[in-house]
Design a protein around this nucleic acid. Structure first.
Lengths: 163, 163
DNA sequence: TCATACTGTTATTGTCTATAACTAACATCT
DNA sequence: AGATGTTAGTTATAGACAATAACAGTATGA
């Protein structure tokens, strides 16, 4: 109750790395389930991706948004979010943030006064190019993990699953 | 509102074709990125999985927890969450819910008065078996999507990525 | 015994996703 | 033109899920 100050044992610097399943747990048929393997792979990959792009401060979703705007300048928010499978209501915040960081601009559309045409700023274009460079290294790291021909085998299979 | 910065459409090398009312959005190199393909595939699959198992009311994480407990009766919460890559602090709620639904029980451990040994109830075992049946149909649906030999090719690649 | 580490727990925060409802602006159809 | 319906952007809200800090009780090894 009378809480004294904390001792802060924390994570300690030395010693044991965290091995996967050091306890010999039987995962049953879990490793044979595509969904489970996919989820575990995605977690690992996103972790690496986020670390790889943390110098530019772009998380996966924001990175993909910049790519779309770069390749399709002038799209409105609904079109962008539809292309990425994001809900347009959830895209508002992302656009706000990207605009606050001066990476994109919302121009009033010429044909439709309801909508904005989104463009990269010069700053956004520069940052995207840096991000693409880092993503390239990330991608190569993954390809190395997969072994020769692995990536070329994997991608079509994933897109079949994604429909 | 209005932009206070230069717009810089930044036309990239690809043809900036603008068709009114067409959804022909250029995804750029996005489809070649493993992380993006993985994310999209995972979203589609999880959607199908959740729908497939909604009659038993199990979401992916809870399903995997039941499998682990079934194959490893008596594990404590830390061991289970470690095996699944879940943080033990976030596992508390899941165990609470599963217990509230009478699918698992927390028995006080014999060797360690701090921890519980988790077991499936009979009800939990029955529900898990139903879930496994539904998961089987789900899995076969995915395998059909992947074509002959696709699943056998995909799984090892995913586990290489997951480390 | 005592410092240290571990188990389960609560509380909090942040990210991401999903739904409902609202406004302004279009579009259509008679 | 007027009624009606639809779309774009937005807000508010809720839920699932993950990450961090802190703490009490217990275990353990020097």
């Amino acid at each position: 109750m009378a809480a004294h100050d904390e001792a802060v044992p924390a994570e300690t610097g030395g010693g044991g790395r965290e091995e996967t399943s050091s306890k010999n747990v039987d995962l049953g048929s879990l490793p044979d389930f595509i969904g489970y393997a996919l989820r575990r792979a995605q977690l690992t990959i996103f972790e690496d991706f986020i670390r790889s792009l943390e110098t530019v401060g772009l998380r996966p979703a924001y990175f993909s948004v910049l790519i779309i705007i770069d390749r399709n300048p002038g799209l409105n928010q609904s079109e962008i979010s539809a292309a990425l499978g994001i809900q347009r209501t959830n895209f508002v915040n992302m656009a706000d943030e990207l605009q606050k960081r001066n990476l994109i601009v919302r121009h009033p559309s010429e044909h439709d006064r309801r909508s904005y045409a989104l463009y990269l700023t010069r700053e956004g274009k520069v940052l995207l190019d840096q991000a693409l460079e880092l993503q390239g290294e990330h991608e190569e790291r993954l390809a190395r993990k997969l072994g020769p021909g692995g990536r070329e085998m994997l991608l079509p299979l994933l897109w079949k699953l994604a429909e």
